[in-house]
Computed example of a mutant assay.
Amino acid sequence: MTFRTLDDAGSLAGKTALVRVDFNVPMEGGKVTDDTRLRVALPTIEKLRQAGAKVALLAHFDRPKGQVVPSMSLKPLVQPLSELLGAPVRFAEDCVGGPAHAAIADLDAGGVVLLENVRFHAAEEANDAEFATSLAELADLYVNDAFSAAHRAHASTEGVAHHLPAYAGESMRRELEALDAALGNPKTPVIGIVGGAKVSTKLDLLKNLVGKLDRLAIGGGMANTFLFAQGVDIGGSLAERDMADTAREIMNEAKVKGCELLLPVDFVVATEVKPGAQSRPVTAGDSLSADDKILDAGPATVARLVEAITASKTLIWNGPLGVFEVQPFDAATVAVAQHAAALAKAGTLIAVGGGGDTVSALNHAGVVDDMTFVSTAGGAFLEWMEGKALPGVEALRA
């Protein structure tokens, strides 16, 4: 996998870098409540500053739908970003035209300016060629450091890359390298864990993975659909019973492609989903009442999954194994996550997770820092796992 990084950019002294970042941070009362996405951008900003470049940051916030919405301005991010950088950050009242050009012209080498919300322009999401040209006129090079927006063919993620030398930022580089190690050119054998509620939302993902993995473990509500398709009694559990034929097709495809599907062999059931609810372990094939709900994988399933992960060199994880938000139905997710993280920390497993509730689940298990890589990109991570080309990444290929 080859894409251009800042190491390929040559001398940056005196140049202006237009950097697409993901600053779509949680806000409350005009204050940033979680600065993770600001901190993720720091290595790229610092690398450019130390190289003597001016840095113009381009980002979106929320969904203004092409209108100027004052409550969606990026201006409240200036102070927290300045504090994280330990350097002043200017603000431009627009991301193109006079205000942007003037703010950039006023910067010294190594200076930073945050441009106003790019989605205040309808031309952004339309990937309008003229708007992309206007963005390109601000700088000498373009840097995409927002993998989370790379699945969108917008002016700031794809269009502008056709007008300037384009490079992956440090966060983007790390994400692409991790995903390539997990799915592009992984160390084998490779095991995947896919959980979550619905098969219907992950059809493309499952179909792509059975052709690439040695083993695929299915958990959460979607496992119930597969069990139902096999004639297993699932009681009153969440399942897409109308997807049974599709589940059987995926099972057949896995068999043809040599991917071993690991479905739960036992599970934890309860009649209600609430903390401390009375629950019991049940073996797959036992009869359940109409009130019984499968809410987590059972201990035998966990033991089998732990053994399978230990025998693997690479793990890619998307989605929890049970209703992890409610104890005691977090047990399987926590146990498997902690085992995978321990192997990753010991250097015997490449463990990459991301998408949907995965970050929350791995945070809940306390293992995010010990995994090889955890992507916060959501939709872009899922589309990558589905085997789809991401416009923002394709524009950076060498």
Rank of each mutant, 00 (worst) to 15 (best):
R4F: 14
R4C: 11
T5A: 09
T5Q: 10
T5V: 10
L6V: 09
D7M: 14
D7W: 09
D8G: 08
D8V: 09
D8S: 12
A9I: 09
L12R: 08
A13Y: 03
A13C: 00
A13G: 07
T16A: 00
T16K: 02
T16S: 02
A17I: 01
L18C: 03
L18N: 00
V19N: 01
V19Q: 00
V19T: 00
R20F: 00
V21A: 05
V21M: 05
V21G: 04
V21S: 01
D22F: 07
D22W: 06
D22V: 09
F23N: 00
F23E: 03
N24D: 10
N24K: 07
V25I: 07
M27P: 02
M27Q: 09
M27T: 04
E28P: 05
E28Y: 08
E28A: 15
E28R: 15
E28M: 13
E28H: 15
E28V: 10
G29W: 13
G30S: 12
G30C: 11
K31A: 14
K31F: 06
V32S: 08
V32G: 07
T33Q: 11
T33K: 12
D34L: 14
D34W: 13
D34N: 15
D34K: 15
D35S: 15
T36M: 13
R37C: 09
R37Q: 08
L38N: 01
R39C: 07
V40D: 03
V40S: 08
V40T: 12
A41E: 05
A41S: 15
A41Q: 06
A41Y: 08
A41W: 08
L42P: 00
L42W: 05
L42I: 15
L42K: 04
L42H: 05
P43L: 02
P43K: 04
T44G: 06
T44D: 03
